[in-house]
Amino acid sequence: MGKALFAGVDIGSSFTKVVLVDSEGEIKGSSVRRSGTDFNSSADICLGESLKQADAGHDAIRYCVSTGYGRKNVSLANETRTEIGCHGRGCYNAFPEQITIIDIGGQDNKIISLDGNGNRLSFKMNRKCAAGTGAFLEEMSGRLDVPISGFNALAMKSDATVTINSFCTVFAGTEVLEYIRDGKKVQDIVKGLFVSVVKRVIEMDSLSGKIIMTGGVVAYNPEIVRIASELLKTDISVPPMPQMTGALGAALFARDENHKLDTSLTAKAEICC
């Protein structure tokens, strides 16, 4: 039997992420692609790419945990965990201390508080509204006719940030149109959008301990971390591969669960003998 791998599959509203770890918890492969409309297919493609990096076949996967919005659509998964649990697990792996995680995803935000042992103390998700999520930035990208991939570089150039007040994405778009009409520079509007995202997220809960930021929005827009740090007046850490934290947490849960199963089987075998 070849080397054992443990898979974490995070099917988010925008992107699907897969991470493979070995029995030591070391990342052996990872992949990310748009979730699209066929979650199983996206997961399969990501898994194939990850296995290629790990130089292993499907039979190497001992256990799989799926998470994210599409967690119940992964046929390979042995069990599901919520993205709250998986982001916590993935972050604690990088920062094993008391932490508060701010995750900005495609359609939801989370604030997760863990104690020094990695146990969850509390969590909050955004309410029904998409304010402060990646979906908000995607919508604004269309309004500004600027690719979202260019947002971070633009925001870094800003020297006169505009203020976006509205909670509502549509009405925030109206504010953006007003700024365009007033001749404001695009970089200042984009910076204003970033500030709006950060404000919507940090007002969700009180923050304590070491602050960590994760998620695709943070991965592609590090300027958002700098703005959050400035507003919160504290240092903020970002784990390696911040978009993959949920998938990594799921993979680590998969490894832990498999270990429990092995231990249980060994104990049974000892009783039988």
């Binding site: 919005y69 919520t82 709250i84 146990n119 998700m125």
Partner: peptide, 30 residues
Amino acid sequence: INGDLNDLRLFSEQQSITNVEAFIEQLNEV
């Protein structure tokens, strides 16, 4: 969890399910 007694336009089923499942995960940890 956010919702409403009658107006289901104010209720996000998936958000609510994830919230409840995450809460039960947390209680099970304890």
